[in-house]
Design a protein around this nucleic acid. Structure first.
Length: 962
RNA sequence: GGGCGUAUAGCUCAGGGGUAGAGCACUGUAUUGACAUUGCAGGGGUCCCAAGUUCAAAUCUUGGUACGCCCA
């Protein structure tokens, strides 16, 4: 530590140094075995991620809370780690391969996964380095990764337990299929966008001889997805629709494929919409799937016309013409797709009903289709249109798991802040759909399920292999072998050897071989991995070692609080509630704090494509991490997004500089570190006053933190530091250090000022950790109070144990009022602000008399009044200034323009009279006096007295001027 | 279509039954003793509109308008 602080605060010079110090000394999680725990888990950023402005907000808020609780003596643990981010990470590595003309499928699954791990070790630490730059005090010694061995164990156990409880099951139904990434995704990963599209109208001819009542031999259907007509399995009409009542149960013969499909009655068909008849493609549309099921079509029998790339494939009935096979679902990269060819063929064959419209000139024109806005589903990662596709996937019974969390939020066991999010939460949770958790990826937690042949045993004890699959779910290979062995031995009565094969994407026949004495059955592991969010849902306890290491789990679960952006309320927060309840029997945390988005300065959402992304690291370089953090805290009011404002960040950089310079001032007067937590004894009014102000500030700050009002907390410490400590206290004590002043007073003031500054540093530390640590040590060095073993990060939160001195408060407030009024009057009258003036105070109040006696130096220095004579002023032109009930007369022969002074006083008088009159009116209203709250009446009376007294004083002052 | 949120000074936002606050910006002013990344002083607001409740509404209720977000 250098003896003298540089004149300007340079964040870059201290940030890295202090961070390294904290981390190396283990100060982010000091040993506090007996202390009360405080635990927050960090939302694990994607291992592929880099710090964006949203992370800066999220992590600043968490760090403020964690540092605050650590200062308050808690055993504060901030769990940190990264998420393996299945899709995102696999995409990153695949993209890198592409750049080298390489691809995933050139490798075995094992080799590819090995390459992802290599990538993770080399490049996966970006965001963790960046979090350090922000000053986040996480427990890096226990850094977690969702694919760590112990974490994987937790994931497998959860899956197996859920399976055994019937809460995870395999089902064949439509999923949201991303044809680019070739994986299923969950509902939440689908983003709907409104696109301009078309609505085509077709004629579907009725089977031989059937006509509608109006004689038509066709039925009209309309669709936004004409290509799916290749897999149509029905036409639906509303059961009450009389137009079609006669043909329900009859058939249409589809153009192109010639497939004969029934006309069914179903409520899904809206008689008001179009013709009232809709084509039904159960294999490629979520609504149609339900209609199909109601019409008695089993999921396994639904026609599928697309492969995993969304190219046309042959349906099981073989009716799709050759020319369609292999075409993409719709136009892509300039090549026409199945959609376009279907339109062309229908048009040629006269089955397309044109859309008639008018041009701007009023001429009729014929279009192939009606233009329409279509809500189109996109995959949030792949960015292509989602295809509803019929596959076997694993589903979590979310409805059952959601029941308890819903109850907990309703009962207040889990508090959501701000509360307005509760409705959104309930709305989703109460209508929750089965959660598709399997993903057709290579990077992730492999699903612990093995498939083998299914065996049926007849009543006579004989058995046979069916075409079905038998699923074995267990945490370990040994357990799977054992389960399978028992199953097959019991069914067959033979001795069974189980082989476990990992041979990739097996969907074919099962091996069942050997002689009667020793049969070998080969099982294949499900090639799929789990949704990333399945594992991160376990974060609040799996990071603590669950299902092992119960001491950490016991102390730190449930966590105390979760802070997250509202954008992951469903993805993550709600699922943690479900899994916390399921695995631990408890809510993962009692409080969920949701913050908003950080937006660009113009209010737009930041996005790479818009190019309006603000890099938090750039802001740290420019203004320092402390300033950025303070900005985030000061702007974080509950329930509103934050608009980026660099000027404001700059303002908080200025605030840091202000504090820096205040400390330099203190040092130049020998004010150094304090050695007590309690406030020092003080006799001087200014010192008593600042002690009281510290006390009030701690109270206000604690209250704000208890309510998680980060803005109020930040503003409290900001206002105290700048507007109280710097602007008034330091000015008030300057005379104490003047030559010839009392050494006792100076000593007391050094004690108190050093203590007050220390309290500021500690209170500010959660918000501005770097500068406060730097100044803390500088203060220690100044008076030989070595703090190398007592850094601020693990210091003690203020506890002044003192009461506010009322007389001191009144005296200092009076000095402040006098000073402000003198300054204001001088300014208005154009008198040099520095001019020292003699003043007279007739009829001094007791407060005035004693304060003038005790604090004449301060009055001279601040109000620049000297000497002050208690008594009548000589006649002549004078400026008159009030403070409380006292009127100072300041003679200004030759300097002052009487007319100006009169005008000034008259302006003030008018204002006072106006106030007084309004209050008088209110007090004259019987209704007010009778019905208003007594406090309100009292206050009105007091205000009236004050204003009328002020008006009297001003009237008298004007009279003096003649 | 359903739900949620927001509307307060030029800008970004707090607040909240007793006629309004912060930061920035703006105006004037100050420069040997911590700080111009500063000090001092000042100007600036029918608190979106309308009705209702009330002694009293910017604040509560209802309706409307505008903007934003989420879900279908």
């Amino acid at each position: 530590m250098t003896d003298q602080l540089p004149t300007t605060f340079s964040p870059a010079d201290i940030e890295a140094r202090w961070y390294q110090h904290w981390e190396e000394k283990g100060l982010f999680r000091p040993e506090r075995p007996d202390a009360e725990a405080f635990t927050i888990v960090n939302p694990p950023p994607n291992v592929t991620g880099s710090l964006h402005i949203g992370h800066a907000l999220d992590n600043t808020l968490q760090d403020i809370v964690v540092r605050y609780e650590r200062l308050r003596g808690k055993d504060a643990l901030w769990v940190v780690g990264t998420d393996h981010a299945g899709i995102a990470t696999q995409m990153v590595v695949e993209r890198q391969m592409e750049e080298r003309q390489d691809k995933r499928t050139n490798y075995s699954r094992e080799d590819f996964v090995e390459k992802v791990w290599e990538w993770k070790h080399e490049s996966g630490g970006t965001i963790t380095r960046q979090l350090r730059r922000l000053g986040c005090s996480m427990d890096w010694s226990r850094e977690q990764f969702t694919m760590d061995e112990h974490f994987t164990k937790a994931v497998l156990k959860t899956f197996v337990d859920l399976y055994n409880d019937g809460l995870i099951y395999r089902d064949k139904r439509l999923v949201n299929w991303d044809p680019k990434l070739k994986t299923a995704i969950s509902d939440l990963e689908v983003e709907t966008q409104d696109l301009k599209g078309s609505f085509w109208h077709f004629k579907y001819p009725l089977e031989d001889g059937v006509t509608l009542s109006d004689g038509r031999d066709y039925i009209e259907v309309a669709t936004t997805r004409p290509e799916t007509m290749l897999a149509d399995m029905a036409v639906a009409v509303h059961p009450t629709d009389e137009r079609y009542a006669s043909i329900v149960g009859k058939h249409v013969v589809l153009p192109i494929t010639g497939r004969k499909v029934p006309i069914v009655a179903d409520e899904h068909a809206d008689p008001e919409l179009g013709s009232g008849a809709v084509k039904i493609t159960p294999g490629h549309d979520f609504n149609d799937f339900e209609v199909g099921k109601r019409a008695g079509i089993a999921a396994g029998d639904m026609l599928n016309m697309l492969d995993g790339d969304a190219n046309v494939c042959q349906t099981s009935d073989g009716l799709v013409p050759e020319e369609f096979l292999g075409l993409h679902r719709f136009k892509r990269d300039g090549s026409l797709g199945a959609r376009e060819l279907v339109i062309e063929r229908l048009k040629e064959q006269g089955f397309l009903i044109p859309h008639i419209t008018k041009t701007r000139k009023g001429e009729e024109q014929e279009l192939d289709a009606e233009p329409r806005t279509i809500a189109t589903p996109f995959g949030d990662r792949g960015g292509v249109v989602i295809e509803p596709w019929l596959t076997d996937q694993w589903y979590v019974d979310a409805e059952k798991l959601a029941a308890k969390p819903i109850e907990q939020v309703k009962s207040g066991e889990i508090e959501i802040i701000p509360q307005s999010w509760e409705k959104t939460f309930f709305n989703w949770m109460e209508n929750i759909q089965p959660w598709c958790v399997s993903r057709q990826l290579w990077w992730g937690h492999r699903i612990p399920a093995w498939f083998g042949p299914h065996i049926e045993v007849r009543e006579d004890g004989s058995w046979y292999l069916t075409s079905e699959t038998h699923v074995f779910v267990a945490e370990t290979e040994e357990a799977v072998r054992e389960k399978a062995r028992i199953f097959y031995e019991q069914a067959t009565g033979f001795s069974i050897e189980i082989g476990l094969l990992q041979g990739g994407d097996f969907r074919g026949e099962y091996a069942f071989s050997g002689s009667n004495n020793s049969i070998e059955v080969d099982l294949y592991q499900d090639p799929d991995v789990l949704d990333t969010w399945f594992s991160s849902a376990l974060w609040p306890f799996a990071t603590l070692g669950w299902p092992n290491e119960t001491d950490l789990v016991e102390k730190h679960f449930p966590n105390n609080l979760l802070i997250s952006g509202f954008d992951i309320l469903f993805f993550w927060d709600a699922r943690m509630m479900m899994m916390g309840q399921y695995n631990m029997g408890k809510a993962p945390w009692p409080k969920l704090y949701l913050h908003g988005l950080v937006r660009a300065a113009d209010g737009a959402k930041m996005s790479k494509s818009k190019g309006n992304v603000v890099d938090p690291l750039g802001l740290i370089d420019e203004f320092g991490a402390d300033a950025l953090r303070f900005f985030m805290a000061a702007m974080e009011s509950q329930g509103r997004d934050i608009k980026m404002d660099n000027e404001r960040v700059k303002g908080y950089r200025n605030f840091a500089t202000k504090l820096w310079n205040a400390t330099r001032f203190c040092q130049s007067n020998g004010i150094g570190a304090s050695s007590t937590l309690a406030a020092p004894e003080a006799r001087l009014a200014a010192n008593q006053w600042i002690i009281g102000e510290v006390q009030q500030t701690v109270e206000a700050l604690d209250a704000a933190m208890a309510d998680l009002r980060f803005d109020a907390a930040a503003n409290t410490i900001y206002q105290f530091t700048w507007s109280r400590f710097c602007d008034w206290y330091l000015e008030l004590i300057k005379p104490v250090f003047a030559e010839g002043a009392s050494e006792t007073a100076a000593a007391e003031t050094r004690e108190v000022a050093g203590w007050a500054l220390d309290q500021i540093l500690v209170m500010l530390h959660p918000f501005m950790p770097f500068i406060t640590e730097e100044l803390w040590h500088a203060q220690g060095a100044l008076n030989g109070n070595d703090r190398s073993e007592y850094p601020i990060i693990t210091a003690k939160w203020p506890d002044p144990r003192s009461h506010v001195s009322k007389p001191a408060t009144q005296a200092i407030d009076w000095v402040i009022e006098l000073t402000s009024n003198v300054r204001s009057a001088k300014n208005e009258l154009g008198i040099a602000p520095g001019a020292k003036l003699a003043a007279f105070l007739p009829n001094a109040s007791q407060l005035a008399a004693s304060t003038i006696e005790r604090s004449s130096a301060a009055i001279e220095r601040l109000a620049r009044l000297t000497p002050v004579t208690l008594g009548e002023a000589p006649d002549g032109p004078a400026m008159q200034v009030t403070a409380g009930g006292d009127v100072f007369v300041i003679p200004l022969e030759g300097i002052i323009d009487i007319a100006e002074e009169k005008a000034r006083l008259e302006k003030a008088l008018t204002a006072s009279q106006k106030e007084a009159k309004s209050l008088e009116g209110r007090l004259g209203n019987a209704n007010f006096v009778e019905r208003a709250k007594p406090e309100a009446v009292e206050k009105a009376k007091a205000d009236f007295a004050h204003h009328s007294a002020e008006a009297e004083r001003l009237t008298a002052a004007l009279a003096r001027l003649g």
